[in-house]
């Protein structure tokens, strides 16, 4: 090897490259150690049986198409739960967004902190946890499910709305202030028209997400199609459970398609 090839690249000193590969090595070893723990130590491979047996068990879940019509009504129920949950989140998110938008929040650190706190709590708690708490307080049925969906999605709605309010362009607001309009009119004609299209897009996006969320709430008794799934699993009617999953998948794909269509048209 000639000496010229040994000249170090000034942008990549050997030390940096060494440190980088050491980090790669450490990460790989950590993942392998976790794999050893989860896949080898904590999994009972002997009980699982051969690959053929596993395949046969998986084949039991192949959807029973004759059962599909019975899935339709719970799917409708799920859709309506998602609608109400989103409506609730939208209604609650407006005051919280008002508190959590830096540029218009009253009593700056206090109300702003409160608004942000609500957003963080709502966004980092899984919908199933909300649903369990509401079910244990209010009993079974779609009502706790709707409340859980509302609590879960209010954070996202309030966060995006607050961000949209923070990013408002001041020009139109100053123009409306110059006409002598009061604060309410400034808000209605200066802020709302700028925020509205973003907000509508987010409402549709959230509806799409809530449709997915609503479909599992029934697993803890909070209404919707998840309940049917849980029943079929308990009765060991795996083919019908498979049809329920197929129905949800179809509904979610259709929902996502329409949500994307509407949002691309809006923007």
């Amino acid at each position: 090897m000639s000496d010229a090839a040994r000249v170090e690249n000034p942008l990549r000193p050997g030390r940096v490259i060494l440190r980088r590969y050491a980090a790669y090595l450490a990460a790989t070893l950590a993942v392998l150690a976790m794999a050893q723990q989860i896949i080898v130590a904590e999994t009972d491979w002997a009980r699982m049986g051969s690959a053929a047996e596993l395949l046969r068990e998986a084949a039991a879940f192949l959807p029973n198409l004759a059962f599909m019509p019975e899935v339709l009504f719970p799917l409708l129920e799920t859709l309506l739960m998602a609608l109400w949950g989103t409506a609730m989140a939208v209604a609650l998110s407006i005051p919280i967004a008002y508190l959590a938008a830096k540029n218009i929040s009253p009593f700056y650190p206090l109300a702003y902190g409160f608004g942000r706190g609500v957003i963080v709590l709502s966004r980092s708690t899984h919908e199933i946890i909300f649903a369990l708490l509401f079910v244990s307080a209010l009993g079974l049925g779609p009502l706790p499910g709707i409340l859980a969906l509302g609590c879960r999605s209010v954070g996202f709605m309030a966060k995006t709305t607050a961000e949209a309010i923070e990013n408002v362009i001041p020009g139109p607001i100053e123009a409306i202030e110059a006409t002598g309009a009061g604060p309410i009119k400034v808000f209605l004609f200066g802020v709302v028209p700028q925020v509205f299209p973003i907000w509508v897009g987010n409402v549709i996006f959230q509806l799409d997400i809530n449709l997915r969320r609503a479909s599992i709430l029934g697993l803890v008794g909070a209404g919707g199609i998840g309940l049917m799934f849980a029943e079929k699993m308990q009765m060991l009617e795996y083919d019908k459970a498979g049809s329920v999953v197929l129905g949800i998948t179809a509904m979610v794909i259709v929902g996502e398609y329409f949500s994307n269509r509407i949002r691309t048209r809006l923007i």
Partner: peptide, 24 residues
């Protein structure tokens, strides 16, 4: 698309039925 559309918790139930309880 299908991986996105199938709810993860239901998928987990199916997998538990096939592979048994546990983190696998």
């Amino acid at each position: 698309v299908v991986a996105r559309a199938v709810p993860t918790l239901m998928w987990a139930i199916l997998l538990v039925a096939i592979f048994g309880f546990g983190p696998f």
